[in-house]
Simulated assay, not measured.
Amino acid sequence: MADVTRASVVSVGLDSTHRFSKPPVERVTLLAGLGVEGDAHLGRTVQHRSRVARDPDQPNLRQVHLMHAELFAELADLGYDVSPGDLGENVTTHGVDLLDLPVGTVLALGQEARVEITGLRNPCLQIDRFESGLLKAVVGRDEAGELVRKAGVMGIVLAGGDVRAGDAVGVELPAEPWVELQPV
Protein backbone atom coordinates (compact mmCIF):
# COMPACT_ATOMS: atom_id res chain seq x y z
CA MET A 1 0.00 0.00 0.00
CA ALA A 2 1.05 3.58 -0.58
CA ASP A 3 2.75 5.73 2.03
CA VAL A 4 -0.32 7.30 3.60
CA THR A 5 1.57 9.85 5.68
CA ARG A 6 1.27 12.31 2.77
CA ALA A 7 -2.17 11.32 1.55
CA SER A 8 -4.52 14.18 0.75
CA VAL A 9 -7.75 15.22 -0.89
CA VAL A 10 -7.13 16.68 -4.36
CA SER A 11 -10.70 17.70 -5.21
CA VAL A 12 -14.30 17.30 -4.09
CA GLY A 13 -17.47 17.36 -6.18
CA LEU A 14 -21.19 16.82 -6.16
CA ASP A 15 -24.19 17.03 -8.44
CA SER A 16 -27.82 17.26 -7.41
CA THR A 17 -28.99 15.37 -10.50
CA HIS A 18 -28.10 11.96 -11.91
CA ARG A 19 -25.50 13.09 -14.43
CA PHE A 20 -22.25 11.27 -15.08
CA SER A 21 -19.70 13.89 -13.98
CA LYS A 22 -19.64 15.80 -10.70
CA PRO A 23 -18.36 19.37 -10.99
CA PRO A 24 -15.67 20.31 -8.47
CA VAL A 25 -16.79 22.52 -5.58
CA GLU A 26 -14.96 24.27 -2.73
CA ARG A 27 -16.20 21.78 -0.12
CA VAL A 28 -18.59 18.91 0.37
CA THR A 29 -20.42 18.13 3.58
CA LEU A 30 -20.67 14.45 4.44
CA LEU A 31 -23.71 13.40 6.47
CA ALA A 32 -23.46 10.29 8.65
CA GLY A 33 -25.44 7.38 7.22
CA LEU A 34 -26.52 9.37 4.17
CA GLY A 35 -23.66 10.54 1.96
CA VAL A 36 -22.79 13.89 0.37
CA GLU A 37 -25.21 16.69 1.19
CA GLY A 38 -26.82 17.97 -2.02
CA ASP A 39 -25.68 15.01 -4.13
CA ALA A 40 -28.16 12.91 -6.13
CA HIS A 41 -26.86 9.73 -4.45
CA LEU A 42 -27.62 10.92 -0.89
CA GLY A 43 -29.71 8.46 1.10
CA ARG A 44 -29.85 5.48 3.44
CA THR A 45 -31.22 3.28 0.67
CA VAL A 46 -29.76 2.84 -2.80
CA GLN A 47 -30.03 5.88 -5.10
CA HIS A 48 -28.46 4.62 -8.33
CA ARG A 49 -31.34 4.36 -10.80
CA SER A 50 -30.56 0.85 -12.06
CA ARG A 51 -30.31 -0.46 -8.50
CA VAL A 52 -33.49 1.31 -7.40
CA ALA A 53 -35.30 -0.44 -10.25
CA ARG A 54 -34.15 -3.84 -8.93
CA ASP A 55 -34.76 -3.23 -5.20
CA PRO A 56 -35.36 0.28 -3.86
CA ASP A 57 -35.04 -0.90 -0.24
CA GLN A 58 -31.47 -2.21 -0.38
CA PRO A 59 -28.96 -0.26 1.73
CA ASN A 60 -26.95 2.44 0.02
CA LEU A 61 -23.37 1.12 0.07
CA ARG A 62 -22.45 3.77 -2.51
CA GLN A 63 -22.98 6.99 -0.54
CA VAL A 64 -19.55 8.37 -1.45
CA HIS A 65 -17.48 7.64 -4.57
CA LEU A 66 -13.72 8.06 -4.09
CA MET A 67 -11.10 7.94 -6.82
CA HIS A 68 -7.30 8.10 -6.80
CA ALA A 69 -5.82 10.97 -8.83
CA GLU A 70 -2.98 8.67 -9.90
CA LEU A 71 -5.47 7.10 -12.34
CA PHE A 72 -5.63 10.37 -14.31
CA ALA A 73 -1.90 10.21 -15.11
CA GLU A 74 -2.26 6.58 -16.19
CA LEU A 75 -5.17 7.53 -18.46
CA ALA A 76 -3.25 10.53 -19.84
CA ASP A 77 -0.47 8.14 -20.88
CA LEU A 78 -3.14 6.33 -22.93
CA GLY A 79 -4.30 9.57 -24.56
CA TYR A 80 -7.33 10.36 -22.37
CA ASP A 81 -7.97 13.76 -20.79
CA VAL A 82 -9.66 13.11 -17.44
CA SER A 83 -9.83 15.53 -14.50
CA PRO A 84 -11.23 15.33 -10.96
CA GLY A 85 -15.00 14.84 -10.99
CA ASP A 86 -15.14 13.82 -14.65
CA LEU A 87 -15.80 10.15 -13.80
CA GLY A 88 -18.42 10.97 -11.18
CA GLU A 89 -16.39 10.81 -7.99
CA ASN A 90 -17.19 12.89 -4.92
CA VAL A 91 -13.66 12.80 -3.49
CA THR A 92 -10.42 12.60 -5.44
CA THR A 93 -7.42 11.52 -3.37
CA HIS A 94 -3.67 11.39 -3.85
CA GLY A 95 -1.22 9.13 -2.06
CA VAL A 96 -3.61 6.31 -1.11
CA ASP A 97 -3.84 3.12 -3.15
CA LEU A 98 -7.62 2.95 -2.77
CA LEU A 99 -7.99 -0.15 -4.92
CA ASP A 100 -5.74 -2.23 -2.64
CA LEU A 101 -7.56 -1.37 0.59
CA PRO A 102 -9.68 -4.10 2.18
CA VAL A 103 -13.42 -3.88 2.83
CA GLY A 104 -14.07 -2.04 6.08
CA THR A 105 -11.10 0.33 5.81
CA VAL A 106 -12.01 3.70 7.31
CA LEU A 107 -10.73 6.86 5.67
CA ALA A 108 -10.49 9.96 7.84
CA LEU A 109 -11.13 12.95 5.58
CA GLY A 110 -10.39 16.41 6.93
CA GLN A 111 -11.10 17.23 10.57
CA GLU A 112 -14.16 15.07 11.28
CA ALA A 113 -15.46 13.02 8.36
CA ARG A 114 -14.97 9.26 8.30
CA VAL A 115 -15.91 7.01 5.37
CA GLU A 116 -15.93 3.21 5.49
CA ILE A 117 -14.95 1.54 2.20
CA THR A 118 -17.65 -0.92 1.08
CA GLY A 119 -16.33 -2.02 -2.31
CA LEU A 120 -15.27 -1.17 -5.83
CA ARG A 121 -17.15 0.98 -8.27
CA ASN A 122 -18.29 -1.19 -11.14
CA PRO A 123 -17.75 1.02 -14.21
CA CYS A 124 -20.48 1.04 -16.84
CA LEU A 125 -20.96 2.08 -20.46
CA GLN A 126 -21.54 5.70 -19.44
CA ILE A 127 -17.75 5.98 -19.22
CA ASP A 128 -17.52 5.38 -22.98
CA ARG A 129 -20.16 8.08 -23.54
CA PHE A 130 -17.86 10.47 -21.66
CA GLU A 131 -14.87 9.48 -23.83
CA SER A 132 -14.90 6.65 -26.36
CA GLY A 133 -12.76 3.67 -25.34
CA LEU A 134 -12.33 4.85 -21.75
CA LEU A 135 -14.23 1.88 -20.28
CA LYS A 136 -11.59 -0.51 -21.59
CA ALA A 137 -8.90 1.68 -19.98
CA VAL A 138 -10.52 1.52 -16.51
CA VAL A 139 -11.48 -2.15 -16.71
CA GLY A 140 -8.70 -4.48 -17.67
CA ARG A 141 -6.99 -7.73 -16.82
CA ASP A 142 -3.94 -8.36 -14.68
CA GLU A 143 -1.06 -10.73 -15.49
CA ALA A 144 -3.13 -13.69 -14.23
CA GLY A 145 -6.07 -12.74 -16.45
CA GLU A 146 -8.19 -11.54 -13.52
CA LEU A 147 -10.56 -8.61 -14.05
CA VAL A 148 -9.26 -5.31 -12.63
CA ARG A 149 -11.62 -2.41 -11.99
CA LYS A 150 -9.80 0.94 -11.64
CA ALA A 151 -12.71 3.40 -11.42
CA GLY A 152 -12.47 4.00 -7.69
CA VAL A 153 -14.13 2.77 -4.54
CA MET A 154 -17.44 3.33 -2.81
CA GLY A 155 -18.13 3.98 0.84
CA ILE A 156 -20.61 4.88 3.53
CA VAL A 157 -20.34 7.87 5.85
CA LEU A 158 -19.67 6.88 9.47
CA ALA A 159 -19.07 10.42 10.75
CA GLY A 160 -20.05 13.62 9.01
CA GLY A 161 -18.01 16.73 8.36
CA ASP A 162 -16.74 19.09 5.71
CA VAL A 163 -14.12 17.91 3.22
CA ARG A 164 -12.02 20.22 1.04
CA ALA A 165 -9.14 19.98 -1.39
CA GLY A 166 -5.90 19.93 0.61
CA ASP A 167 -7.38 18.05 3.58
CA ALA A 168 -5.38 15.14 4.94
CA VAL A 169 -6.51 11.55 4.36
CA GLY A 170 -5.93 9.06 7.16
CA VAL A 171 -6.27 5.31 6.71
CA GLU A 172 -7.48 2.91 9.42
CA LEU A 173 -7.29 -0.71 8.32
CA PRO A 174 -9.81 -3.21 9.74
CA ALA A 175 -8.80 -6.19 11.82
CA GLU A 176 -7.43 -9.13 9.85
CA PRO A 177 -8.29 -11.29 8.04
CA TRP A 178 -8.90 -8.70 5.36
CA VAL A 179 -11.63 -9.07 2.73
CA GLU A 180 -10.70 -8.05 -0.81
CA LEU A 181 -12.84 -5.36 -2.43
CA GLN A 182 -15.60 -6.52 -4.76
CA PRO A 183 -18.01 -4.41 -6.84
CA VAL A 184 -20.93 -2.91 -4.92
Rank of each mutant, 00 (worst) to 15 (best):
71 L>V: 01
21 S>A: 15
59 P>C: 02
7 A>H: 06
108 A>F: 00
66 L>R: 01
91 V>M: 10
90 N>E: 12
91 V>Q: 11
19 R>W: 01
4 V>T: 15
117 I>M: 07
87 L>Q: 06
73 A>N: 05
44 R>I: 14
119 G>K: 04
99 L>D: 05
25 V>F: 10
14 L>V: 02
8 S>R: 15
22 K>T: 09
6 R>T: 07
76 A>K: 08
95 G>R: 08
97 D>W: 05
102 P>D: 11
124 C>Y: 02
28 V>K: 05
48 H>T: 11
108 A>D: 13
107 L>P: 06
74 E>I: 03
127 I>V: 15
43 G>Q: 09
24 P>S: 15
25 V>E: 07
85 G>Y: 08
104 G>S: 02
94 H>N: 07
43 G>T: 07
25 V>G: 09
102 P>I: 06
92 T>G: 12
97 D>Y: 09
53 A>V: 13
97 D>R: 06
20 F>W: 09
26 E>K: 11
23 P>M: 10
93 T>S: 10
106 V>T: 10
127 I>K: 01
95 G>T: 03
26 E>Y: 02
123 P>H: 04
46 V>L: 10
39 D>W: 03
5 T>N: 14
116 E>V: 12
5 T>E: 09
114 R>E: 14
32 A>G: 09
97 D>I: 01
130 F>R: 11
75 L>C: 02
111 Q>Y: 00
28 V>T: 12
113 A>H: 09
77 D>F: 00
27 R>Y: 14
87 L>D: 13
121 R>K: 06
122 N>A: 14
49 R>V: 12
82 V>C: 05
101 L>Y: 04
104 G>H: 06
111 Q>K: 13
63 Q>V: 13
118 T>N: 07
126 Q>A: 13
65 H>M: 09
22 K>N: 07
112 E>Y: 11
113 A>K: 01
119 G>S: 11
4 V>L: 05
109 L>K: 02
106 V>H: 10
47 Q>P: 01
46 V>H: 07
107 L>S: 13
125 L>Y: 10
88 G>P: 12
74 E>D: 11
49 R>H: 12
87 L>T: 12
18 H>I: 12
38 G>P: 03
93 T>M: 13
4 V>S: 15
68 H>A: 15
67 M>H: 06
104 G>D: 13
91 V>F: 06
55 D>T: 01
9 V>E: 04
121 R>P: 03
90 N>A: 07
78 L>F: 01
100 D>H: 08
97 D>P: 08
41 H>G: 10
129 R>K: 12
12 V>N: 07
109 L>Q: 10
22 K>A: 10
74 E>F: 00
46 V>P: 09
82 V>N: 01
17 T>N: 11
26 E>H: 14
59 P>Q: 00
10 V>L: 04
122 N>H: 11
45 T>E: 09
